[in-house]
């Protein structure tokens, strides 16, 4: 009882986050994690033709490894430096991992399922599969799937010390894909399914992405060693899917911490 699902829009947001004017007031107190997620989702949706989907027919699925880490540390710093009973309620509410999903839902008027998933391996792919199943089974007519990481200076310090390097390869970034029933929307390609298998790994390998490689037509042979690199590479490849010589693909991601398989069709 499932139908094909198409990727109908893709957005990537790397580095600086310019909040759209329409959202600036609502996002003025939001942290960078929330701003990145909302801005990327807004940009992805704004490219779609106007339609009359009911808000309950749209869902949000966010995948993140580290969540609003800087806000968490700001909160921890406040507790340590200023003492108990002094925490800002706004800061606390923004430190909760699903705060971004709540903002996306509220600002983009989405009232279907809203899900935030964390995993140190490929959280965006887990969110993508949840969104795909929700659309495929007819539970919703559109899934907005977001991958977002804003990191923190503490995490960067750990990365540098784990690998004995001077710089970190990441910039804060977000990607947003829109999934819809294949018959209802034009899109880049059909997303047929994602299979994931995790392996036991050294904890540091999850941060430093040891051995992570992508294989498949249209994918880059090498990617930077950071937790959003795979999501950015997949987003770029999807955006130019129509230029690929064949239209049926199985993209593979291998790493010391697992294996992922993404099945696509033109």
């Amino acid at each position: 009882m499932s139908g094909p699902v198409t990727v109908s829009a893709v957005n990537q947001l790397i580095g600086n986050c310019v909040v759209p004017e329409q959202l600036a007031r609502e996002l003025r107190r939001a942290d960078l994690f929330i701003q990145m997620a909302v801005t990327s989702a807004y940009s992805a949706i704004s490219g779609l033709p106007a339609d009359k989907l009911h808000p309950e027919e749209i869902g949000v699925f966010i995948g993140t490894a580290y969540g609003p880490l800087e806000t968490n540390f700001e909160l921890l710093g406040s507790l340590i430096n200023e003492g108990e009973g002094q925490i800002s309620p706004t800061l606390f509410s923004h430190s909760v991992y699903n705060a971004a999903a709540g903002y996306v839902a509220r600002l983009l008027e989405i009232r279907g399922p809203v899900m935030t998933i964390t995993n140190y391996g490929w959280p965006f792919l887990i969110a993508l599969e949840e969104g795909r199943v929700a659309v495929s089974t007819g539970r919703i007519a559109r899934a907005v799937v977001i991958g977002v990481e804003t990191y923190s200076e503490l995490l960067a310090d750990a990365y540098r010390r784990f690998l004995q390097v001077d710089t970190v390869p990441w910039e804060r970034s977000a990607v947003a894909w829109v999934l819809e029933p294949a018959g209802a929307a034009k899109g880049f390609c059909r997303l047929q399914g994602i299979n994931l298998c995790e392996y036991e790994a050294q904890p540091a390998d999850l941060l430093t992405r040891r051995g992570e490689t992508l294989t498949g037509c249209g994918l880059p042979p090498e990617i930077p060693r950071h937790p959003m690199a795979y999501a950015i590479a997949l987003s770029e490849a999807i955006s130019s899917y129509d230029k690929l010589p064949a239209q049926q693909h199985c993209w593979l991601i291998n790493a010391s911490f697992g294996r992922a398989e993404i099945n696509l069709a033109g």
């Binding site: 705060a99 999903a101 839902a105 989405i110 809203v114 899900m115």
Partner: peptide, 9 residues
């Protein structure tokens, strides 16, 4: 599963 799309807390 559904969202209020209403308020942060």
């Amino acid at each position: 599963c559904a969202a209020d799309a209403w308020h942060p807390t």
